[in-house]
Design a protein around this nucleic acid. Structure first.
Length: 576
DNA sequence: GCCGTTTTCGGCCCGACTGTTTTCAGTCG
């Protein structure tokens, strides 16, 4: 039996935390499980392997008790405590806690006193007006429960919006607000500012309270209005919730910092601050010694008062950034302007929408020094295969276009399929005729973990495969990564000098930030590519940059920050 | 359940809102 993935272990710890919470455990014990689950999910290597080596307690938040439970999970597939608790609390009870206003405490009372053990049982109890008979519950709450059930809140998880859509809407809203008050400070906060893969809602901070009344008047919004003297809420036509918060200019930094989160970052920041006699909130920093509250106009001041250097929003996930900020060892993160070329682009030769020359002109306009044309290969399987003969012709066409378009180096490449056995779908002499080969999986996603890992590692071992494209195949919010031991792939890439792609499509962002960070730490060089299928597609590169920044990468970790000659010299085909 | 310029016990971020209440627990972000 292969080891459970970090996400599997994390899910098990989260579930156990939920069960203990239903069981009435003290909240700090429950939180310990959630903290541990998060740490496992964010861990850079295999937690199962670490546990088998007896070193899992090196992860902050995991002690002897959780080590035992993780080992049980690895060895038997189950955690005994979870098995026992599941018998006591039916799964329908956890579903009930997904309803707004119904947490573990109230759900537990409905279960104990009314026998409510599922959303259906809850509906029956509410319809019969039995819920209002409980102490602490009332008619209003009963109506709210029925309304939430009717809205389907118990069945589907709350939907999240992809970052590209969220930023597009957020920027339009900010633009509209700025037009109303050009002097106001207006900033996007929340997970959109941290450039997470997807967002639950949009948070915007302003220093001009009169803008709160304007939110609902914007064309972009379906509805909106004030919810308190300092806040307004609205909903876009696409259903995205927008939270607008106003604060004085003197406290702008405090509120911006607070609303930019993440909650884990803020909690850890505040815990650190308490140890030095400071209490950080969204309104200011209370100093124990003087009993004065310091207002901060900027985030720099917030972090400086806490004894920390400024922390970029992309790093605020409590993944070690506070310790690094205290020690003055935060990395200088890679920026879009560091990028000199894009090494993954399609044309009409396969499934792209533009010609080689059009793509070249678009890349030139972005200031790039080089662009690789990497159409799909012979077995793409979507009716746009590029036969070996066609690829030889395509190489000539790229050379011709390269001679024609001034100011940018065009590279003849291919995005070859990695066949189920791990081999590429062109012959070696054809691959050798190319400047650059990126290899990706587009078929047979359902191989088991061992077979998929061997497949990918075989590809990474191929002397003419320079990089692995979108290495896990995940689509944000749509498709889970295929079963793959990413650590093993990273190790193979490190050993062979194969690069790993951070595919910048906002739908992919693959590798993700966790694995990208692990890859860089293992000495693997990352390459950030757009995977453009049109001239406009080249402009998705910032999403890859943001993933790289969330992975703590510097320009030195990213190969395509190099000029082409230096890049080419680092290719394993050059070094042979 | 974890952890240590509070170190093996006693703490563990901060604040707003809600509904059901005469003072607050629970929920949420």
């Amino acid at each position: 039996m292969s080891d459970p993935a970090n996400s599997t272990i994390a899910d098990a710890l989260d579930e156990l935390g939920d069960l203990y919470e239903l069981d009435g455990a003290v909240i700090h014990r429950v939180l310990a499980y959630r903290t541990a689950a998060r740490a496992v999910r964010d861990a850079r290597g295999s937690v199962a392997q670490l546990a088998r080596e007896g070193a899992v307690t090196s992860i902050p938040g995991i002690g002897a008790t959780l080590e035992r439970k993780i080992l049980d999970l690895i060895e038997t597939g189950e955690i005994p405590a979870a098995v026992k608790l599941r018998e006591r609390y039916p799964p329908g009870l956890l579903a009930i806690t997904a309803l707004p206003g119904l947490g573990p405490k109230r759900a537990r009372r409905l279960f104990d006193e009314l026998g409510v053990d599922s959303p259906d049982a809850l509906r029956a109890a509410a319809s019969a007006q039995r819920i209002r008979t409980l102490k602490g519950f009332g008619a209003k709450g009963e109506q709210a429960i029925l309304a939430a059930l009717d809205a389907g809140a118990a069945e589907r998880p709350r939907s999240r919006t992809l970052l590209d859509r969220a930023l597009e809407i957020g920027e339009l809203i900010i633009e509209a607000l700025r037009a109303l008050d050009p002097q106001a400070q207006i900033m996007l906060a929340g997970s959109a500012r941290r450039r997470a893969d997807s967002v639950k809602d949009l948070d915007i901070v302003v220093d001009c309270p009169s803008l709160l009344d304007s939110l609902g008047t914007l064309d972009l919004l379906e509805e909106g209005g004030r919810t308190s003297p300092s806040a307004a809420r609205g909903r876009t036509h696409s259903g995205l919730t927008v939270e607008l918060r106003a604060v004085s200019s003197e406290q702008f930094g405090n509120l911006l910092q607070h609303l930019s989160g993440s909650s884990a970052h803020n909690a850890a920041l505040r815990e650190r601050a308490v140890r030095v006699g400071l209490h950080i909130s969204e309104y200011g920093i209370l100093e124990d010694a003087t009993q004065t509250t310091h207002h901060c106009a900027t985030e720099d001041e917030v972090y400086a008062r806490a004894g920390l250097s400024y922390i970029e929003p992309e790093l605020r996930e409590n993944r070690g950034e506070l310790e690094a900020a205290a020690a003055g060892t935060l990395p200088v993160l890679v920026e879009l302007s560091d990028i000199r070329g894009d090494l993954h682009a399609h044309t009409t030769a396969s499934d792209g929408h533009a010609s080689i020359e059009q793509m070249a002109q678009a890349a030139l306009a972005l200031g790039y020094e080089y662009l690789a044309i990497t159409d799909h290969s012979a077995t793409h399987g979507f009716g746009d295969d590029v036969s070996p003969e066609q690829l030889r012709r395509q190489i000539e066409l790229v050379r011709e276009a390269d001679a024609k378009v001034e100011g940018i180096k065009l590279l003849a490449g291919s995005e070859v399929n990695i066949l189920p056995d791990g081999s590429p779908d062109y012959d070696d002499d054809l691959l050798a005729a190319l400047d650059w080969v990126i290899a990706s999986v587009h078929t047979s996603f359902a191989l088991d973990r061992d077979a998929m890992t061997e497949r990918m590692c075989r590809a990474a071992n191929h002397p003419l495969i320079d990089a692995i494209g979108h290495p896990t195949g995940r689509l944000v919010q749509r498709r889970a990564p295929y079963e793959l031991d990413v650590d093993a792939l990273i190790a193979t890439c490190a050993a062979t000098g194969t690069m790993l792609e951070i595919n910048a499509s906002p739908h992919r962002r693959d590798l993700d930030e966790i694995h990208s960070r692990a890859a860089a730490a293992a000495g693997v060089r990352l390459v950030i590519n757009s995977d453009a299928h049109s001239t406009g597609g080249l402009q998705s590169l910032p999403y890859g940059i943001w993933t790289a920044r969330r992975a703590w990468l510097t320009a030195a970790d990213v190969a395509n920050t190099l000029p082409w000659p230096a890049f080419a010299a680092r290719l394993k085909r050059s070094r042979r």
